[in-house]
């Protein structure tokens, strides 16, 4: 069980850092937003392994769901603005 958690966390850590580097280096803004959402999702798995299910639920609902959507809405609105 312990070993399983460590392997899971290792994979999640590599994925998180990879997504963060992707968010930093990519040219497209929407890829960066999606990478930030993925980081929140991986972080919620981190919280679950760290024995805090309350925080994991909050992070999954707010960080991965609502914030990502909010970024996309603002991005679309600015693009609409630019067209006018």
């Amino acid at each position: 069980m312990e070993l399983f958690s460590i392997i899971l966390l290792l994979v999640m850590g590599v994925a998180t850092i990879g997504s963060a580097i992707l968010a930093l280096t990519t040219k497209k803004t929407d890829v960066a937003i999606l990478a930030a959402g993925a980081i929140s999702l991986f972080a919620s798995i981190f919280f679950l392994v760290l024995a805090s299910p309350d925080v994991a639920m909050t992070e999954a609902a707010i960080g991965a769901g609502l914030s990502t959507f909010l970024f996309f809405v603002i991005l679309r609105k600015t693009e609409q603005n630019a067209e006018k």
Binding site: P53, D54, A56, M57, T58, A61, I62, G65, L66, F69
Partner: peptide, 25 residues
């Protein structure tokens, strides 16, 4: 359900509120 059962299970007002917000979205 999530915020009514906040004192028994993981979850509570913030999580339930976020889920309701997602539904409205």
């Amino acid at each position: 359900y999530v915020f009514v059962n906040g004192h028994l299970t993981p979850g509570g007002g913030f999580q339930g509120g976020a889920i309701i917000g997602t539904a409205i979205l």
